Computed example of a mutant assay.
Amino acid sequence: MTQLDPAAPLERPTQRSQAKADRRAALLEAAAGLFAERGFNGVSIEDLGAAVGVSGPAVYRHFASKQAVLEALLVGVSERLLAGGESVERTAVDADAALQSLIGFHIDFALGEPDTIRVQDRDLDSLTDSARRQVRRLQRRYVEVWMRELGALHPRLADDELRVRVQGTFGLLNSTPYTARVGTHQVASDAVRPVLERMAWAALTAP
């Protein structure tokens, strides 16, 4: 068997493979917007294709079904949140810094992907049982990252209270797609962010 040289540069993606990856990413972004607007059941494969300028059948080159699109969207975001949370946990100098970084990381997500939050709120039950269980497992692990850092900062808090504080903070931050709008006016993210940072910190560390 040929041994790979660990010092050798990684093979760059071909133009074709990069184009395929870009189209897949575009389909997921379009799906988030369409599912958020109409609900999973209100969107067809043809709608997804049209949103990125391809035919409905062309979507099947990237996803086996509309169900697979939803799974890639919701499992994918749960994987990214967990990976980001674990990265913060590994690199933060102490629990105080870790918690502040976790808040900032989650605010980036909430402000950057409001459609995904809306899809998860409404369409999680449209996943297959196995995909829904996978999302729940990933979410529990993400919560546990926050609990560890909050527990290190406040070691007297019981696990149940740590969990309630973290889940309550997620409820606050994940409400952004709904609360960052006043009537027809969308509040600028640079105005929303500092408010969310203060409120999240207060919720997590309240006496």
Rank of each mutant, 00 (worst) to 15 (best):
G183D: 14
S101H: 08
T116G: 13
T91M: 05
L127H: 09
A98K: 00
S126W: 05
A98F: 02
R137L: 09
V145L: 01
V75H: 07
D121K: 12
Q167I: 15
D129I: 10
V166G: 00
A98V: 01
M147G: 03
V119C: 06
A158K: 12
E149S: 15
A158M: 08
T116Q: 10
D121H: 14
L138K: 02
D159V: 13
L81M: 14
G151K: 07
Q134W: 02
D160W: 02
R141T: 05
D125N: 13
R148E: 09
L111Y: 02
E113L: 15
L157G: 02
D115C: 12
G104N: 13
S175R: 05
Q167N: 11
D125M: 06
A131L: 06
R80G: 12
Q120C: 04
A83S: 06
L99C: 09
D115G: 07
E149L: 00
H154A: 03
L102Q: 02
L124K: 09
L173E: 08
D159S: 04
V135D: 05
V69R: 01
I103V: 15
R136K: 09
L127Y: 09
R90K: 12
G151R: 00
S126K: 10
R165G: 05
V164T: 13
S101Y: 01
V77M: 15
W146K: 01
D121F: 11
G171C: 04
G183L: 11
W146Y: 02
N174D: 12
R122I: 06
D123K: 06
P177V: 00
G168T: 01
P155I: 10
A110C: 14
V88S: 06
L153K: 10
P155E: 12
V143Y: 01
S130C: 08
R80H: 10
L157C: 11
A97N: 11
R141D: 12
L99I: 08
P177G: 10
M147Y: 04
I117G: 04
A95T: 12
S126E: 10
S78C: 12
E161D: 14
I107C: 07
V69Y: 00
L102E: 08
A152G: 15
H106W: 08
E89L: 08
V119R: 03
L99G: 07
A152D: 13
E89S: 14
S78L: 08
V88R: 10
E161H: 06
L162F: 09
